[in-house]
């Protein structure tokens, strides 16, 4: 365990150095934006609509008390979406998608000796392969989460319109109540940390695969499991540190 952590740190130190050629790095970055980021938009949007709607309905159902003002529901739904649902839950989903994608891609390159081929050519494979993945995720996952927050809140509004749990007007009033900009900052800090965890852990696990196709399969599962656990642990740590 400790050795693995050491190996992980060593790999990251190889990842973060000056690329051999900046033009090639930019091309690789663009490619990863598409390969990892663009292809994730659909799943994030679909999930966010439903999560937002469910959050709103749940809050409404649990605060079905005439003494509580209706705008509390919009407020609570917003807080849940901004603080936890979008940054953490969507990151967990992305850990599933991106984690397996990254680990199996790098793992296959390892077992078919493509990584060795890069190395003997005099290329730094860690830097060439992994840095564009991490950098592109650090940029687009926060963007995806902002999308997700907006769409999630929209989903809550849709739920109000379609089911009539509360009036959409009250929902909007709730949304605008007691707004603290720090909650958005908090969401973004979490997202950036999670993005780094997902990409770096999955890259490490894929990069270090030994053996054949069976091990690649195992690595891809392991990448999802380990990065999900890391996200949950860091979620707790960050929430403790930043909100209390």
């Amino acid at each position: 365990m400790l050795k693995k952590l050491g190996d992980y740190v060593i790999l990251m130190s190889q990842v973060f150095c000056k690329p051999d050629k900046s033009l090639i790095f930019r091309k690789r970055l663009l490619h990863e934006f598409y390969n990892l980021g663009f292809t994730s938009i659909g799943i994030v949007l679909i999930l966010s609509v439903f999560v937002g709607a469910v959050a709103t309905i749940l809050v409404a159902y649990n605060t079905d008390n005439p003494l509580l003002p209706e705008k509390l529901i919009g407020f609570s739904a917003r807080q849940m979406i901004v603080l936890e649902f979008s940054p953490t839950m969507i990151s967990l989903i992305l850990a599933g998608k991106l984690g397996s994608q990254i680990a199996s891609e790098l793992g296959t390159m390892r077992v078919t000796q493509q990584i060795d081929a890069l190395k003997v050519m005099g290329v730094n494979p860690a830097n060439y392969l992994i840095m564009p993945k991490i950098i592109s995720c650090l940029f687009f996952i926060p963007v995806l989460i902002v999308f997700s927050i907006v769409i999630g809140i929209l989903g809550g509004w849709l739920a109000c319109v379609l089911t009539g749990v509360i009036t959409p007007t009250n929902y909007v009033v709730g949304l605008r109540s007691w707004f603290e900009p720090f909650s958005l900052t908090f969401a973004m800090i979490k997202t950036v940390v999670f993005a780094f965890l997902i990409t770096s852990i999955s890259s490490y696990i894929g990069y270090e695969v030994k053996g054949g196709s069976v091990e690649v399969g195992k690595a891809s599962t392991k990448a999802v499991v380990v990065s999900s656990i890391a996200i949950i642990i860091f979620d707790l740590i960050l929430t403790q540190m930043l909100l209390t």
Binding site: Q113, Q114, D116, K119
Partner: peptide, 18 residues
């Protein structure tokens, strides 16, 4: 790395970038 840039290597399995 300087020496590696002067090497060409053919791997047992080819190792082309797929």
């Amino acid at each position: 790395i300087d020496i590696r840039k002067e090497m060409g290597v053919l791997f047992q399995g080819g190792a082309l970038f797929d």
